[in-house]
Structure formats: structure tokens, C-alpha cells
Design a protein around this nucleic acid. Structure first.
Lengths: 198, 198
DNA sequence: GTGATATGTCAACATCACTGACATAATTTC
DNA sequence: GAAATTATGTCAGTGATGTTGACATATCAC
């Protein structure tokens, strides 16, 4: 009703902002100009909803311990990279020392993670999961793996999915991330006190 | 498209084989216990890092407006579903009225979103993006679309990715989400005052 | 010994989520 | 037409997670 007329008026003014503001119908799906591609709203939203459920499942399980998503991330990476240092963890998570300290304190007090002084550098606090923490980390990872397996099956293969996710990462970070994700493959056999990330 | 579907179906059979062989870059191929599968840490982490960068880019752009991720989500869905109601938005975002009220207030005061009384039910506040808000929403969506396009290219096709993300969603929610994501496709031609979500 | 490094900690603050309670207006129902 | 229901607004309080900046301590490296 009055709405369409209003928008027409408004869009007439904002001609300079042209394409973006040539709004009335929001877009023109009929004209598929190659220079001005229509946003891929579908995938944007599927990624939103998919990720939400993906992390929502662990979130629920962690709520029983009064843990949140931040605890999960710390527990996950310490489980993955035994002997990880504080600095290493900060570099992976890209959060501040204080944010980490809070959740790490919880995890240590609840006996899910333990610290040991570094063998070579005794300033460092090497982080390890306890049996209890390792079990929890694995349990959560298994649930997520089951979900991933289902999704991979629907996708028709794991490799396209891995490629997709890898290239969702900023190209500047990609190599660093790959190193972290794949790290265990290379330096698998290490002494427990050896560094997780040299 | 049809090609992708065919490929999915065809490769579905060989997947169990290829995956079983390809995935376990993680664990060694020595012990492949079927009951106790090794967690897919790689994908879990790629999803974490990939999603972080995917939402990180909009986050940066929104910081200039003193907006956060919550503002982005609201702006996105209102842009996508013109005439969306408060209740509809709450149902999509799965947050509380208060959480929504805060960011919505910001978006309305900054002239990115506007409200109008419902035509049939005047209790409802139908939400619309302003030209300004629509432009911002589109700009952000375009940046994310470029990133997705790159990742899709690496994956070798869009359909597997869409399937993967769709099946990452809890099966109980999937249909509802599909309805929201695909909604615009079906009820494309609507008057501006028509409901976004009947 | 001096300076850099790894970590711990404190105070203060912002964002985004939550709960519960209550108010208002419009619609629906009987 | 009164009563119940619905859609929304709003207030007060809380919690989780992130931020900055400053400062303390132990250890290493030269």
C-alpha cells in the first residue's frame, strides 16, 4: 500500500548510491548482471544456522559443568596440542590474556587441565589435559564428528568440505591455521614435555 | 547443477571407501576400529577458523558504526525478509526480546531500520530496512559472498557445500531453517506490505 | 647485572546474552 | 461488550565473554 510508494520516493532521491539503494524490491533477481552478482544469502544463512547448531550441542553438554564456549575452545586445543603454552594458546584463540585467564582458571580448578613448568624454559607453563579433561574433550569432539560425518555424507565427500572451509579463512592466516590444524600429523611422536608448537 | 547432483549420488557409494582411506590422515591407518572412530579434529578446527574469519570481516566493517555482530544479524534478516515482525525475528535469532530490543533500538535510531504498524494486525511492528540500512546490509553480504565464492571454487561446486551446511543443522530445525532460507524464492512476488513470513 | 620474555593479576569497561516482572494496545473469543 | 489472548515495550538485575592498560614476578639471554 503506502509502503511501496514511500520506498519509491526514497529510492528516487538516493540515486547517487544507485545500485545498493535501488531498493524497492530489495533486488532484481530477474536481471543477472555479471558485474553485479546477487549476494548468496542462502549460504550465508546456512552457515549461520549450521554453525549455531554445531557449537550448540557442545554448549549444552558444557552447561552441566558451568562451562561455556570459551572453556570448550581452551580444552579442545590443549587436548589437541599437549604441552601448549599460554602464549601459543593466545595466538590460536586470538583473545587477550585476561579472557584466557578466567576460563583457564576454571578448567584448572575443576581438574580438567593441569600446568607444568617448561623443561627447557621454566617460565613457560605447559598445558595438558587431565584424564578427566581429556575424556570430556573427546566426548565433545565425538559428538561434533558424528554431526560432521552426517553432513559430509550429504555433501558427497570430505575433501570438498575441507577445501571449502580452508578457503573461508583469510589467505593471510591460512598457512598459520593449516600448520595448527595439521600440526600433529607432522610432529606426532614427541615426549610429553616436548613443545607442542616449536 | 544437475551434474553436481549426479556426482553426489554416484560418488556416494565410493565415499565410505574413499573417506575411510582419506580422512585418517590423522590417525595412522594401522588401527581402524569401526566402533571407536577418531574425532575429525581437522574439520572441527577448520570450521572454527573459517567461521571466525567469515564473520570477522563484517564485524570489522560494522565497528565503524559502533555496531556488533548482533546488529549485523538483525539487519541481515530484516533486509532479507522485509516486513518481518518482532516475533518472527525472535524466532529466527532465538534470542530474547530484551537482547533484540537493544540492538534494534540502535538500528532504528541510526536510520538503518524502520518500523511500520501492520496492515491487518496493528499490534505488529513490521520491520524494513531503510535505503541506508539496505545498502549496508548488501555491502556486507557482498563481501561474504565473495569469500564464499572463493571457497566454493576451491570446493569444486556449490551444491556439496550447501548440502554440508544444511546437514550440519539439527534435523529437528532443518525444515524450519530451510523455509526461512529459501522463503524468498517461493513467495518472491509480494507487495511490500505483504508478510515476509505468513 | 641488565634487559627482554612469559606469565599472573588487578581494575574498569563493553557487548550480548539471560530472567522475571509488569505495562500497553489491539485482537480474538465468548 | 467484557474477558482473555496476543504482540510488543520496558525496567531491573545478572552472567559470560571479550576488551584495555598498568603493574608484579620469575626466568632467560647476553
Amino acid at each position: 500500500m503506502a509502503v511501496a510508494a514511500q520506498e519509491s520516493r526514497l529510492s528516487a532521491q538516493t540515486d547517487s548510491l544507485s545500485d545498493a539503494a535501488a531498493v524497492p524490491g530489495q533486488k532484481s533477481s530477474d536481471c543477472k548482471s555479471p558485474d553485479r552478482e546477487f549476494p548468496d544469502y542462502e549460504l550465508i544463512e546456512l552457515l549461520f544456522f549450521g554453525y549455531r547448531d554445531f557449537v550448540g550441542e557442545p554448549d549444552q553438554a558444557l552447561a552441566a559443568f558451568n562451562f561455556g564456549r570459551a572453556h570448550h575452545r581452551v580444552l579442545h586445543f590443549v587436548n589437541r596440542q599437549p604441552g601448549l603454552t599460554i602464549a601459543g594458546l593466545l595466538d590460536i584463540l586470538k583473545i587477550t590474556k585476561q579472557s584466557l585467564a578466567r576460563v583457564l582458571k576454571d578448567l584448572i580448578e575443576s581438574d580438567h587441565i593441569e600446568q607444568r613448568a617448561g623443561a627447557d624454559d621454566r617460565r613457560q607453563r605447559l598445558l595438558f589435559v587431565t584424564p578427566c579433561g581429556g575424556a570430556l574433550a573427546e566426548q565433545l569432539a565425538h559428538a561434533q564428528t558424528r554431526r560432521l560425518a552426517r553432513a559430509i555424507k550429504a555433501a558427497g565427500g570430505r575433501e570438498p568440505v575441507a577445501q571449502f572451509l580452508t578457503h573461508l579463512i583469510d589467505s593471510e592466516h591460512r598457512m598459520q591455521v593449516m600448520g595448527e590444524v595439521m600440526g600433529e600429523r607432522m610432529g606426532e611422536v614427541m615426549s610429553a614435555t616436548g613443545r607442542g608448537r616449536p
